[in-house]
Nucleic acid binder design. Structure first.
Lengths: 345, 345
DNA sequence: AAAAACAACTTAAACGATTAATCTCTTACG
DNA sequence: CGTAAGAGATTAATCGTTTAAGTTGTTTTT
């Protein structure tokens, strides 16, 4: 391994001078600068980041703790983080907590999640990262569960009540816009297949829906609200219930694409045509949404952007820029495909 | 930050002694060992890995270079790598090349991929990782594209011809078994919707299919072989061609789930019943495969296991264990769902 | 009883960078 | 002309560990 020392010897200067040209600090004459640069080139010198980090107490490495990498949103967020990191000289140290695989749907049990944390995270904290990005599996509150100590941290796809920085998407607005779209298409009987009701996204999305219904002076029918559990089966079952109800809705707002897929299956099975007989709108824009038949109209989550904004926030915290926004909320976008149409007369 | 020096002072010993108890090296009396451990506990000392790495020239960090994180297989492989890493004290430094997003289907143009490499990878190499795992986007040959220099490297979901270590799944065997399953269900007219034909998996899978057909003494009909491009549309279009052909197949082997989904759509559109009128089998076991209607029977790739085996290989190379297998090939497993049945008489 | 061996420590030099403090020239200015 | 200022370089300490080599004092061997 070539060291600064080797460069210095060959170029007949001190190590300090070499370091100065490497970092563009100090004052070095153009002549020696050129000379040193040439030697560096010749010897194919690669700086040792470890040594540098030890001295300057900065690693230019960001820890990324993800509750579950295999969850659909994680890789897209990581991709966003990576894009910014690459362009700004940061590396990413990744740790996967695997909460979903280890706890399943038990993860609302905060104590269990907490117990999962230490082994996975201690290591990453000790590795001397400059800051941390925490990617949850649901946009739920993780305060009290995660203790990152004094390390600057930005939470995304989850948040901490009150303290801490977070980047998320706007559930309320997204549901509002989805509902508004349905209403504008002419629907007035709009059912909802919700996720688990003790979760923030479910609550916020319901409120967005409710707001849109009220703003457009439609009647709110509680029998149109069904509570699912985010899974395919519940979308399927609840849609059957909806179709068997006294008044049949002309549109269904499913709170994720997986349940929407279940809803589509249920409708198709009953011989209904989508969107002629019933419209369905999903949430997430999962990859499969354009592989199913008919292709699903859905609200796309700004995942890539969330990753980008999370690391931007973190970097601005690291740079002590005071203006950093505490809780960013990004907008979802409506992806129009083939499951929404005007209702029959 | 608490240093070894601080511990040493408080415990009235030298830094060397502290280091010895920390590493379990040297010879330290039980009495001082206890004493030092107590001080460490009291002061909540956390070792500085950076300093240690500088000295011992080992980081216990493994670089993971992935051609595209958002590709369906990547996160599952990463999950496998992570599981082993966590249990063996390694950290993961992740870099995403984003080849798919940057090059699209152009990635068979090796020159372009090569040009993408340096900026993304140089950084990770300089960060002094002990070894590298490279995760491709297709199981294609990347030799000549990727230059990891002297760094121990294991390739997965891709390979290098001849030199280097790799872990992959067995395409030939998987296709053989899928075909065999179809034959055993009673099918004799089995069509294939292949991926791009200049790709290794396409070739190997075709050979597996061909072998199975021959082994079971069926006639091989070239008109049953259609070449797609891995995308949904081609599955759809080619299935329509197949259905319009002079002899209609009773089963379709699609070389990935996405094309299989296209095939299902085409069949459904023609009013065919699956699997009564036609059987369809996919490849990959994508998440959506159980969300589509009917649920797709498919060959599952051993992704998690590939990640585990990749890092196992790497670690055994790092430990200079000579016995490390050069090119591991893992088995796919058949996931039986609802798109394969016995053919009509 | 002297020599050798060993256990239990300590000393101090690395590892490869950064950087405050110095030093030596020039150049500029009143 | 004397001196202050500045440019361009060097010296050496430092970051937090590890570890070879050295130092004790005690035990074993012969």
């Amino acid at each position: 391994m070539i060291r600064i020392k080797d460069i210095a010897q060959k170029a007949n200067v001190s190590t300090a001078t070499v370091s100065y040209v490497l970092n563009g600090t100090g004052s070095v004459s153009e002549k020696t600068r050129i000379k040193i640069l040439k030697v560096i080139e010749e010897m194919n010198y690669q700086p040792n980041h470890i040594a540098k980090s030890l001295k300057i107490k900065k690693t230019n490495t960001i820890g990324v703790v993800v509750e579950d990498v295999t969850s659909f949103h994680s890789s897209e967020i990581i991709d966003g983080i990576n894009e910014y990191a690459e362009n700004h000289g940061f590396s990413l140290l990744l740790t996967n907590m695997r909460v979903l695989k280890r706890l399943g749907r038990d993860l609302e049990d905060q104590e269990k999640v907490r117990q999962l944390t230490p082994p996975a995270m201690k290591e990453i904290l000790n590795k001397q990262v400059d800051g941390l990005i925490y990617i949850g599996v649901h946009t739920r509150d993780v305060s009290g569960i995660i203790n990152t100590g004094t390390l600057p941290t930005v939470y995304t796809y989850c948040y901490t009540s009150g303290e801490g920085y977070s980047v998320n998407y706007d559930d309320h607005l997204a549901a509002y816009e989805a509902t508004k779209y349905l209403i504008e298409e002419g629907h007035s009987k709009i059912a909802v297949i919700s996720g688990l009701f003790n979760s923030n996204p479910s609550r916020d999305r319901f409120n967005g829906y409710y707001q849109a219904v009220k703003d457009h002076e439609l009647v709110f029918d509680p029998s149109f609200i069904k509570t699912g559990d985010w899974e395919f089966e519940s979308g399927y079952t609840l849609t059957r219930e909806l179709l068997d109800g006294t008044t049949r809705p002309t549109a269904i707002l499913a709170m994720n694409d997986v349940m929407a897929a279940g809803a589509i299956n249920a409708c198709l099975e009953r011989g209904l045509h989508i969107p002629e007989d019933i419209s369905i709108i999903g949430f997430d824009d999962r990859e499969f949404s354009s592989y199913i038949n008919p292709k699903l109209t859905t609200m796309r989550l700004p995942l890539h952007e969330m990753g980008m904004e999370a690391i931007k926030s973190l970097v601005s915290i690291l740079n002590q820029e005071e203006a950093t926004e505490k809780n960013k909320k990004l907008k979802c976008t409506l992806i129009k495909r083939h499951t929404v149409g005007k209702p029959r007369e």
